[in-house]
């Protein structure tokens, strides 16, 4: 393994550490706001990682959609509902608890092995799909390629995805109305 680090590698590791730290905070923090901000730091750090890879479009979408819109909603509702003193009393049987911890640990170890294996074999770098970086820049940048694909061959599925969103929207309104009456 090559141990010489460029500036980009250092930043990559830093953002990776922030992401891992943020996810740990999200899992183990007690305060709901801290949990939401932990998730926010994970989203921002992964966005920065995409940016380091040169995928500015994906990085921007990550920040606009998740950090700028969805997490604002989360933090907003946590603040409004004042979930500060909510305590979950999970009465788990001891055996089941340790069994689930062991299962999770095994699963996590499998993921780690998988990631390390692919990281060393550099397989990820060789598996380009149809759109290599050269081809994307030749076609006029990420945004253009993405929108052209979205509104030509994937048009039907793009429109189809909006239907579940509509259903969720109507469902939310119905639930809210019922609560008022």
């Amino acid at each position: 393994m090559d141990l010489s680090m460029t500036l980009e590698d250092i930043f990559l590791f830093a953002f990776g550490l922030v992401a891992v730290g943020g996810s740990l905070v999200m899992l183990f923090a007690k305060n709901p706001i801290t949990v939401a901000l932990g998730l926010l730091s994970v989203l921002l750090a992964t966005g920065c990682t995409y940016g380091l890879m040169g995928e500015h479009m994906v990085a921007t979408l990550q920040i606009v959609v998740y950090a700028g819109a969805i997490m604002v909603l989360f933090v907003f509702s946590i603040m409004l509902l004042n979930l500060n003193n909510l305590k979950f009393d999970l009465a788990w049987p001891r055996v089941l608890f340790w069994a689930s911890v062991a299962g999770l640990a095994a699963f996590f170890a499998l993921i780690c092995i998988n990631v390390l294996y692919f990281f060393q074999s550099k397989m990820a770098q060789h598996q380009w799909g149809e759109f290599t970086p050269e081809k994307v820049s030749e076609l006029g940048g990420n945004a253009r390629v993405l929108s052209q694909a979205l509104f030509s061959q994937n048009y039907f599925s793009f429109e189809l995805v909006s239907i579940p969103l509509l259903i969720a929207l109507v469902g939310a309104v119905v639930l809210a109305k019922r609560k008022l009456n």
């Binding site: 706001i33 926010l40 500015h56 479009m57 921007t60 979408l61 920040i63 606009v64 950090a67 700028g68 819109a69 604002v72 933090v75 907003f76 603040m79 940048g141 990420n142 945004a143």
Partner: peptide
Amino acid sequence: EVNAGVLFILAFAGLEVYPIILAGW
């Protein structure tokens, strides 16, 4: 030099909500 410059500015504008929420809370 980001080719999706406008989107990036919108992303940062979206982050401007957090200090207000955090400071108030």
